[in-house]
């Protein structure tokens, strides 16, 4: 296995808070193993920046100290990481989150530009960190089945066709990272919304209030300032879980059918 250490130049977006104006800072990082993940590389850089920050300064040289970035599980499932790397959500390579991106995808001497998600509905709150509460709000509008705890029928009382359960699971794999919105030129959240609507619409338990759900979630999505889907398919190309825009078609169908019944 080739194990040549890499030196890299990083251009990282720095922004103090939601109100401040941000800009790029350029850093270098040396001796990165190709086996490290991109986030581990950022850990190394941050560690270096903290040390630099701890030393007394002769003159102010701009943005000092570590930069903030969201990350948590580091195994591709929590959806916390939200970096736009070299012009792609979650960076080069397909069907991965940022934490699954490894440095062997880059070359020694590369310049890597890292930006936060950019969308009106996801304000930047610090450096590379954005606020994605809009997603919570959309789901609060109807992304659930109205059942109380307890008092439900036996799990096997309603058979569900295997293909339906599988397709529902395809959609349910959504991790809510927001790469779809970040990558969409329209800032549309349709892939995210459709994943939930479609997953529940395919199951008899969710079918019952399908019309209500589609209307409520689309209305909330529109209200929060997400854009209109124009079927560019960029979302499904960047989705770390490979969720298909066929689910958007189902959402459209559910929504229009519900509206025509009104």
């Amino acid at each position: 296995m080739e194990n040549k250490l890499m030196n890299l130049t990083l251009k990282i977006w720095r922004q103090k808070d939601a109100k401040s104006k941000g800009g790029f800072e350029t850093y270098t990082v040396e001796g990165v193993s190709p086996d490290t993940s991109l986030l581990e590389m950022l850990d190394i850089l941050n560690n270096k920046l903290i040390h630099e920050d701890s030393e007394p300064v002769a003159f102010d040289k701009g943005c000092r100290g570590p930069f903030a970035f969201d990350h948590d599980c580091r195994e591709g499932i929590c959806g916390m990481c939200s970096l736009f790397i070299n012009g792609e959500a979650h960076g080069p390579d397909s069907e991965i989150t940022t934490c699954q991106l490894h440095m062997r995808k880059f070359k020694d001497g590369d310049t890597i530009t890292i930006e936060p998600w950019r969308s009106a509905a996801f304000p930047v709150i610090r450096d590379l960190v954005v606020e994605r509460q809009a997603f919570d709000k959309i789901l609060q509008a109807g992304g659930f089945v109205n059942v109380n705890t307890g008092g439900v029928p036996d799990a096997n009382s309603i058979p569900i066709a295997r293909d339906d359960a599988e397709e529902s699971m395809d959609a349910a794999a959504c991790i809510g990272c927001g790469a779809c919105v970040a990558t969409c030129k329209n800032g549309s959240a349709m892939l995210f919304v459709s994943a939930r609507v479609s997953s529940l619409a395919l199951l008899p338990q969710g079918r019952v209030e399908g019309a209500r759900r589609a209307k409520a979630m689309v209305a909330k999505m529109d209200e929060l300032g997400f854009g209109n889907c124009t079927n560019t398919q960029a979302c499904q190309m960047e989705c770390p879980k490979g969720i298909s825009i066929a689910h958007i078609a189902r959402l459209n169908r559910e929504f229009l059918a519900a509206k025509f019944k009104d």
Binding site: K11, G22, F24, F84, N86, G87, E88, T113, E115, R118, S119, A120, A121, F122, V124, T183, K185, N186, G187, S188, G225, F226, G227, N228, T230, N231, T232, Q233, A234, M237, E238
Partner: peptide, 30 residues
Amino acid sequence: LTLQNRKARGTERYAVSKNPPGVAWSSRNM
């Protein structure tokens, strides 16, 4: 729709932006 979508995109734009493979040029320039 285009005006709305520009607004939804936010004020700050990506410094580097790649067209993901599989996205038709026409779809982004309708």
